[in-house]
Amino acid sequence: TSIVNVSSSLNVRSSASTSSKVIGSLSGNTKVTIVGEEGAFYKIEYKGSHGYVAKEYI
């Protein structure tokens, strides 16, 4: 489990790309479970499925 480190919110994306669809967002200090990594993104558990967040904010 890791913590989201942002002051406002962090986009959760459908794939490991800044141009991919935003499927949701997480607020600062939210706990997330990392299940993998791809480039500059972590794959996380998100709403019963998976999403991707930028590593620099975790």
Rank of each mutant, 00 (worst) to 15 (best):
I23F: 02
I23A: 01
S2E: 07
S15D: 09
K31V: 14
S49Y: 08
I34F: 03
K55V: 05
Y46H: 04
S25P: 04
Y57F: 14
G48C: 07
I44W: 03
E38W: 07
G51M: 02
G24I: 04
V32E: 00
T30S: 11
I44K: 00
H50P: 05
G39F: 04
F41V: 01
G39K: 05
S20I: 01
Y57N: 10
G36V: 03
T1Y: 05
S19C: 13
L10Y: 09
T30N: 06
I44M: 01
N11S: 13
E56I: 11
T18S: 13
S15M: 10
G48V: 03
G24L: 05
Y46D: 00
V35Y: 05
V22M: 06
I44T: 00
S9Y: 10
I34T: 02
K55M: 07
G39W: 03
N5A: 10
G24K: 02
T30M: 11
T33N: 10
S2Y: 08
H50D: 06
A16Q: 02
E56M: 10
N29Y: 14
Y42F: 09
K55I: 06
S19A: 12
E45L: 13
K21H: 10
A40N: 13
S27M: 13
S8I: 14
G51A: 08
G48S: 07
R13N: 07
N5M: 12
G24M: 06
S9N: 11
S25H: 13
I44L: 02
K47S: 07
Y57T: 08
Y42I: 06
I34P: 02
V4I: 11
G24S: 02
I3H: 10
S25C: 15
E45N: 07
F41R: 00
F41Q: 01
G51R: 01
V4H: 08
G48W: 04
I58W: 07
K55S: 04
G24N: 02
I3Q: 09
G48F: 05
S2H: 15
Y52W: 11
T18L: 14
H50I: 15
K31W: 14
E37K: 05
G24D: 03
L10A: 14
G24F: 09
N5P: 09
K55Q: 05
S9L: 10
A16N: 04
N11D: 15
N11F: 10
T33Q: 08
V6C: 15
K31I: 14
V32S: 01
E38K: 07
T33H: 10
I23G: 00
S49E: 10
Y52L: 01
S17G: 06
S15W: 06
A54M: 12
V53N: 00
S17R: 07
V35A: 04
V32G: 01
V12L: 03
G36M: 04
Y42T: 02
T18A: 14
K21T: 12
I44E: 02
S25N: 11
S7D: 10
Y52N: 00
V6F: 06
A40D: 15
S9P: 13
K47E: 14
G48M: 05
T18W: 13
S8W: 09
S7W: 05
V35R: 04
F41I: 01
S17A: 07
A16W: 03
A54R: 12
E38G: 02
S27E: 14
L26K: 01
A54I: 09
K47N: 14
N5Y: 06
N5D: 09
S14I: 13
K43G: 01
G36S: 07
N11V: 15
E38C: 13
S27F: 09
T30H: 08
V4Y: 04
T18P: 14
V4E: 07
I34L: 04
I34Y: 01
L26P: 00
R13H: 15
V22H: 04
E37W: 09
Y42S: 03
E38Q: 08
Y57K: 09
A40Y: 08
I58T: 05
I58K: 03
I44A: 00
V6A: 10
G24V: 04
S27V: 11
S27Q: 12
L10I: 15
V53R: 00
V32C: 05
Y46V: 02
K55A: 04
A16I: 05
T30R: 06
K43N: 02
E38M: 07
I3Y: 09
F41L: 01
T1A: 13
S49P: 00
S8L: 11
N5S: 12
K47M: 14
S17T: 09
S14M: 14
S2L: 14
K55Y: 02
K21Q: 12
S14T: 08
R13T: 09
I23S: 02
S15N: 09
V35F: 05
I44H: 00
H50R: 03
Y46F: 13
G36D: 06
L10F: 09
A54G: 09
V22K: 05
K47I: 06
I3C: 14
G39P: 01
S27R: 13
L10S: 06
Y46N: 01
K21C: 10
S2G: 15
V6N: 08
S14F: 10
I3N: 07
S20D: 03
S2R: 15
I58A: 04
K55G: 02
F41Y: 09
G36N: 04
T33K: 12
V22L: 07
S15H: 14
E37F: 05
S2K: 13
S2A: 15
E56P: 04
V32Y: 06
I44F: 04
Y57Q: 12
S17D: 12
G28C: 14
K21S: 12
N11R: 12
V4C: 14
V12G: 01
A40E: 15
Y57D: 15
V32W: 04
Y42K: 02
E37D: 07
I34A: 01
V6S: 12
S9V: 12
E56Y: 08
T18V: 12
S8H: 15
L26N: 00
V32K: 01
V4G: 14
G48Y: 05
K21I: 11
V35H: 03
A16E: 02
I34W: 05
S2N: 13
G51L: 02
T33D: 05
G48K: 05
T33F: 09
A16P: 14
G39I: 02
K31E: 10
V12W: 01
K55H: 03
E37R: 05
S17W: 03
S8F: 11
S9R: 14
S17Y: 06
K55T: 03
E37S: 08
A54E: 15
S27Y: 09
V53F: 02
G51T: 01
T33G: 07
Y52S: 00
A40L: 11
Y57L: 11
E38T: 06
S8K: 13
A40S: 10
G36E: 05
A16Y: 03
Y52K: 00
G39M: 04
L10R: 05
S19V: 08
E37I: 08
K43S: 03
G51Y: 04
V12F: 01
A16K: 02
E56D: 08
S27D: 14
S15V: 06
A16M: 04
L10K: 04
A16L: 04
K21W: 09
E37H: 06
Y52V: 00
G51W: 04
I58H: 03
F41C: 04
Y42Q: 02
Y52D: 00
S20A: 14
R13A: 04
K31Q: 13
N29S: 09
K43M: 10
H50N: 05
R13K: 06
H50W: 15
S14A: 15
E37C: 11
T1E: 11
Y42C: 06
Y42P: 02
S14V: 11
S15K: 10
S19E: 12
Y46R: 00
V53K: 00
Y46Q: 00
G51V: 03
I23V: 07
E37N: 05
S7Q: 12
S49R: 11
I3E: 08
S20V: 02
G28N: 14
E38R: 05
S19H: 12
Y46S: 00
T33A: 07
F41S: 02
S20H: 04
S8A: 12
L26C: 05
S15I: 06
S7Y: 05
K31R: 13
E45C: 12
T33P: 03
S25W: 14
G36Y: 03
I44V: 06
Y52F: 10
H50F: 15
N29T: 08
K43A: 05
R13S: 05
S17Q: 07
N11G: 07
Y46P: 00
T18F: 15
S2F: 10
